[in-house]
Simulated scan of single mutants.
Amino acid sequence: MEQTNRIMTQIPQHILEKPGARLLYMTPLALGDFLYQSGYLQQIQRQYPQLTIDIWFDDLRKRSKSWQQGRNRILGQWLEATDYIEQFYPIPETSVEREEAVARAQQRDYDAVFFLSKSRVDRYEKYARRICPKGFVAAVAASKNRLKRFLFGARPDLLLALERFSLADGAHVSELYSHFFQQVFNLKVQTVKPALEVPESWQQRISARFKAQRQQGCRLILINFLSTNPSHDLSLDAVMSLAGEMLVLQTQLAFVLCVPPHELEHTEKACAAVPDALAGRVLAFTAQEHFFELPALVEYCDFILSVDTSVMHFASALERPLVALMRTNNRQWRPLEASTTSVVYAMGTDWVKDIPQSSIVAACEAQGFFHHG
């Protein structure tokens, strides 16, 4: 490759249009990210039908987290259900597994690698170059101070620094994805609205699972109170207190407490030990069989109360009545605006657990959670 000082703004068309071309997309992908990004990845494949797209969602952490294997399973099942992603590389448990993934990726002989990340940029660049030593490496990264080294190093690759694209006040993270996917891949579409289609078979399974509550005349409130960040979470005690207050306002309610797989046993024990007023009205849930259990549950429940996780975004995409609980410093990740959506922001400490219960109940009441009929 001839060295150049020209700043490129997109992956060259001859790479994307090459017969049999292969692209590896590397990013610390979570379910909410994929909801907003999937439409653009699908559009890339449509615009360049000869291009094979693989995804590396290993976030390149040095230490593993308790939630990683659950994400591997659930996100992997969603990726397998698509027709525009051919292969994916999940989060490994050990460095040996990561090296095995690198070796498999090297065998794919990618024509280009594109990584998008706000953290661990040096590691993403290192692994992208190892995987694609002869191809084109493009990046969107919070990496302003290493922009020159990346651009004017051994190869004339592409780096777009996140700091060079400022989201307007009140803008949504989907606008950032729209900007970069359009620019890097020269897409012919504007903003792609997130879409989520739930197979009927999973809708039927969820309906059968909560048949008893429906027969009792209960409306279901899904409460999603845990994330991968403690500052975003509600405590289980706070959830039980909320459920008790809500039952005073509307007696025909049942609550589905949605938790990650590793929290299921603890939550089930708590649900079995509730006071008589809540007995049989609080149920623990996790997606044990397949990813589609989760969006099927979101679609089935009458109301959603969620902290800042994928459940909140699924509820927005599926147009379910939603009250979202968020930190003020994360407004760009709020659910998309809709008449069925309310957002309650943490103030003061900016921890969700410090949102007054009265504020949460008031927002739920405004969204019709306690209406009779």
Rank of each mutant, 00 (worst) to 15 (best):
A195I: 13
G153F: 05
F136K: 02
D169N: 14
Q107W: 07
A142E: 14
Y127I: 03
V184Q: 01
E163T: 13
L158R: 02
R129N: 09
A161C: 15
E100P: 01
A139P: 05
R149T: 13
A139T: 03
L151T: 06
L147S: 10
E100W: 03
L162D: 05
F115Q: 00
E99A: 10
W202A: 03
A138W: 01
V192D: 01
A128P: 04
Q203C: 08
A154T: 11
P156N: 13
E97V: 13
K188L: 08
Q183Y: 07
P133Q: 14
R129S: 08
K118W: 11
V102Q: 06
R164T: 10
H172G: 03
E97M: 14
K126C: 10
R149Y: 10
K188R: 15
V192A: 04
S143A: 15
Q106C: 14
P92V: 06
K188Q: 15
D157K: 04
K193H: 11
F114H: 01
D109K: 15
R164S: 12
V192C: 10
L147V: 09
L162G: 01
A105E: 04
A139Q: 02
V140A: 06
F165G: 00
A161M: 11
K126W: 10
A105V: 02
V121S: 05
V198S: 08
K118H: 12
R98F: 06
P133S: 14
F136Q: 02
A141V: 09
V113W: 01
P92G: 06
D111Y: 04
Y127M: 07
V137E: 00
A112D: 02
L196K: 02
V184C: 03
E200Q: 15
F181M: 12
R149W: 12
I91K: 03
L159T: 02
S143P: 00
S117H: 01
F181C: 11
P199D: 09
E125S: 08
S166H: 07
R155H: 12
P90L: 04
Y177H: 08
H172E: 05
K193E: 15
V121H: 01
R155A: 10
S117P: 08
P133E: 12
R108Y: 00
S201P: 00
S95D: 13
F136I: 03
R120M: 09
C132R: 03
A128M: 10
V173E: 13
Q106L: 12
E197N: 13
A138R: 03
K126T: 14
C132H: 05
S143L: 04
F185Y: 12
G170R: 07
T94I: 06
S143R: 10
P199I: 12
R146N: 15
F150R: 09
P156K: 08
C132T: 09
R98S: 03
L160D: 05
P194K: 03
L176Q: 08
L159E: 00
S174A: 14
P90Y: 02
L187K: 02
L196N: 05
I131L: 07
L147P: 00
K188S: 15
D157R: 01
L162V: 09
E93T: 07
E200H: 11
P133F: 11
R164D: 15
D122F: 09
